[in-house]
Design a protein around this nucleic acid. Structure first.
Lengths: 199, 199
DNA sequence: ACCTGAACACCGTTCAAGT
DNA sequence: ACCTGAACACCGTTCAAGT
């Protein structure tokens, strides 16, 4: 949130903003410190033992947890993992990737890609909510499209009316499942599960 | 950028900050307007005709273009497409998805997922660059791990030394290619191309 | 309709000074 | 080592007043 300013935090804690600078470098540093311990408040779920299902379950758990604490998402955009209590999810994702036949390097890359999917959904879901709260807000897309654009942008014009419904119908679980299929590639299919995806 | 403040833009244009409020609702509105025309400055590339290759090519073009204009990425986080000149990329992605056998709804979802992958990479690549520019910045992960954590977080402890290299080695093209495989699912494999991914 | 100046209620950060 | 007050250089936005 924007509620996390140096001055506001200082007031909350009962000191001056300047006193904080003896404990943190700058605002970003303070923000990252505020994450300490937040993961501990969320109970660790039971996970399926099949590695592919486990991979999906942990990723969905991460998504669901962060969806309920949007300010954490903003702090995570600084690009560091500062809460040790959250690392078990990264461990599980990398571990499950390896158990599915990925190399270590591939598993780390897969973790990043899955994180990007989770993070992106959270950011734009939140943006949608914010815009929904303010109904007077100008909407640009797809309202800016007219029939004259049909030659250049046929699909977008055809889908213009349904666009917002389709966007709200975004299915995190299904999409992550598909992404995992892609990331596991041949490794996932020859591993025994032999899973195939429809749509 | 943070350079786009009401007051700074007003000074640049040669008026007062308040005059801007007769043309935009608020700062977000101004930011979205600044995007108008930016896409026109980028030449539209030639694209492969095979729909799956086309899907990857457009997505990579989008990524490459935005990587060179980071402030645009920040504005896009507001969640609207305000520059008509950029819509051809969305059109191409949705169109290629459909050409690969996805339904319209699936193609829109696939577009969102690919956008999340692109956006996430841009956000965290940028965060990494910022941290690299400031070498005194505290690093939390994976430096916070010790041998005592090996029981709980075996993979992370084992990978701690290589983590930053592995993170920098993130291969956008390869990962997007894998994600596309997953998103196309059976549709992509029975479509004739019959493509299989290794790792 | 369009612009203005002054004001309100904030920011992050620095710096010299205190204990 | 730790905290303070005052100050610097900013923010977005509102509002009554001007043309």
């Amino acid at each position: 949130m924007a509620a996390l300013s140096m001055r506001r935090v200082a007031k909350e804690v009962g000191t001056t903003p300047m006193a904080l600078y003896h404990h943190v470098r700058d605002k970003d540093d303070l923000l990252m410190l505020t994450l300490s311990g937040t993961a501990a408040t969320v109970p660790r779920p039971e996970l399926p033992s099949d590695p592919r299902e486990r991979l999906l379950a942990v990723t969905l758990h991460m998504h669901g947890t962060l969806a309920r604490m949007p300010w954490v998402v903003e702090v995570l955009s600084l690009g560091d993992l500062t809460d040790k209590g959250a690392l078990w999810m990264v461990e599980e994702i990398v571990g499950a990737g390896i158990a599915c036949g990925l190399t270590e390097a591939e598993a780390v890359r897969a973790y990043r890609t899955l994180w990007h999917c989770v993070y992106g959904d959270l950011v734009f879901r939140r943006a949608m909510e914010r815009r929904a709260e303010d109904p007077d807000r100008k909407r640009y897309f797809p309202g800016m499209l007219t029939d004259a654009d049909a030659a250049e942008l046929p699909h977008l014009v055809a889908l213009a009316d349904q666009w917002s419904e389709l966007t709200e119908d975004y299915d995190v679980s299904g999409q992550l499942s598909a992404v995992i299929d892609g990331l596991l590639g041949r490794a996932g299919r020859e591993g025994g599960a032999g899973r195939e995806r429809a749509g």
